[in-house]
């Protein structure tokens, strides 16, 4: 298992319940070990298994939820 972490910019969140639904949904994706979404910094820090997910797939998953996400290192 090779873990790495990425921090993605997330636009469009305005309240805690948006944060929660993202953490629940993205957190339940296969290969996602840990996710922390920050409303203030408008970003999500995700630790994931590189063989199952990638920054792009995670960014797509966030876009799929209707939020805008940007790959920011």
């Amino acid at each position: 298992v090779n873990l790495c972490s990425v921090s993605l910019g997330v636009q469009g969140m305005t309240c805690g319940s948006c944060v929660q639904s993202i953490e629940q949904r993205i957190g339940s994706l296969p290969g996602v070990i840990h996710i922390k979404v920050s409303l203030e910094q408008k970003n999500a820090t995700i630790i994931f298994d590189h063989s199952q997910q990638s920054p792009e797939s995670l960014s797509d998953a966030i876009e799929d939820m209707g939020f805008e996400s940007s790959l920011s290192e």
Binding site: G12, C15, G66, F67
Partner: peptide, 14 residues
Amino acid sequence: MTCEGCSGAVTRIL
């Protein structure tokens, strides 16, 4: 939906 963030997400999805 509890806030504009959620309705914004639904809008973008649709």
